[in-house]
Design a protein around this nucleic acid. Structure first.
Lengths: 248, 248
DNA sequence: CGAAGTTTTGAGGACCTTCAAAAGTTGTGG
DNA sequence: CCACAACTTTTGAAGGTCCTCAAAACTTCG
């Protein structure tokens, strides 16, 4: 791995631009944000719930999740973030985080002071729109997750999350859409789909038995894409891929 | 009820300003949006999933929800919207809705063409920020709901949603924070908390039996607020009430 | 090569669902 | 104002899905 220490927000810019066009100046201004490159090991907290938020983080490499905790020890992962994602842009607008953020693998982040993000949004309305759009796409994923844990059975749920990974990783070139590395333990997967680890294991087995997926080590191969889509009732519209944006 | 037919967005402006300060001109411009006043009966679809989105709607009176459907007939309500709420601002940015919106009681909406909202955001960066902020607060609620259906038991879930209603209705002066009208059938409540209607009924009974709540007709009284908060592990921070905003 | 973590298996039980019907409420028209 | 229909809430009972606990097999890592 190269020893690059200069923050490079180009991946994150690319993601913003998948949805909203940006002028040269806006792009330039975004890339010149005073970012700090930070490297985290696996399973490190980046922000804990209730902490004051002062920096947004943009993922360059690795995998992070946002989660909420219950007094009784319950944990719910509410989203995963892959390279290119702008995590918690929202913290720019809120004083105290209502959720935690942590890594699942070694990850590289670029963090930017919230007030710098805000200032940029105020200066470039088109960037404000892009950030708004990004937050909105986030919201769409949360809604789908609510549906997932609220109304799908265990097998459907796990199938759905696998497809979401496949789809999103493909968008950033980390998968061909069928095969990908699932860098998440079954226990963490369970916290994302609202099941017990044991039952996640059994759901995966069940999907394997029906030849819908195949796994080895940490990689997952979707063997029967049509079957999985049917199983999960997966309609990727909620991910609002490029091309759906309504340019003015 | 007065026969007012002139759209009045002041309630919605008030909500925006609970979080972000706005200049006189921005306020004026928002109030002058070309809005159309529309009245719907109970249980009417305003937008169906998959339909093109062309108008945002701002609630003046009544109750609406956003929901997602599954092929197998499952329905998940992902949010409720009360007077003052700006529903689906996001549609300004997305071509096709990934969810439906419908009324639960007779409701009065003001609808605005998405492009008008967008144009306003482009002209007034402070409004763009306010809209972004609003979308973000929405996201926080979705996250909490994911936690709710994913990791809380039935009694806790229903207690949590009741408290959310009490809290939000208080913010807009429709409750004192303890007593409010629950204008939702148990079947719809079930679709919001990811349970069967029968079990919602039993959860409510259980809360009543422990003297945590009292109900008559459609009104709910929270008898033991501390007990309910404990039961639901309710921390209202996710609702991002006024005063939490990080003004630049 | 041993230690720690992760996945897998088994068994018993809790929680919640489904189905079905009764009781209660609300709304409508005569 | 009553009667009836439609809807909503409540009750009961049986069963399935998913959970918990506990231990074994397998992997990964130092």
């Amino acid at each position: 791995m190269p020893q690059a220490t200069i923050p490079d927000l180009s991946k994150n810019l690319a993601k913003l631009m998948r949805r909203a066009p940006l002028s040269e100046e806006a792009q330039q201004a975004f890339l010149e944000l005073p970012a700090k490159r930070e490297v985290f090991a696996a399973y490190r907290d980046i922000i804990r719930e209730g902490e004051p938020t002062c920096r947004c983080c943009f993922v360059e490499e690795g995998l992070v999740s946002r989660y909420k905790l219950l007094r009784n020890g319950g944990r719910q992962i509410v989203s995963f973030h892959i390279p290119g994602d702008l995590v918690d842009l929202q913290s720019s607008l809120v004083k105290v985080s209502d959720h935690g953020i942590r890594t699942h693998t070694a990850t590289v982040l670029h963090t930017v002071a919230c007030q710098d993000v805000l200032a940029l949004a105020e200066k470039f309305p088109e960037l404000a729109l892009a950030f708004w759009f990004e937050t909105l796409a986030d919201g769409a994923i949360f809604r789908e997750w609510t549906l997932n844990v609220g109304r799908r059975g265990a097998r459907e749920r796990t199938a759905h999350l696998l497809l979401e990974f496949a789809y999103r990783l493909k968008q950033v070139g980390l998968s061909d859409g069928r095969e990908f590395e699932l860098l998440v333990t079954q226990a963490d997967f369970a916290d994302a789909v609202g099941l017990s680890p044991v039952h996640v294991n059994r759901s995966l087995q069940s999907l394997r038995q029906d030849a819908l997926i195949r796994t080895f080590k940490k990689t997952v191969v979707i063997e029967d894409m049509a079957g999985m889509i049917r199983e999960a009732d997966f309609r990727p519209g909620y991910l609002h891929p490029e091309g759906q944006s309504a340019a003015a």
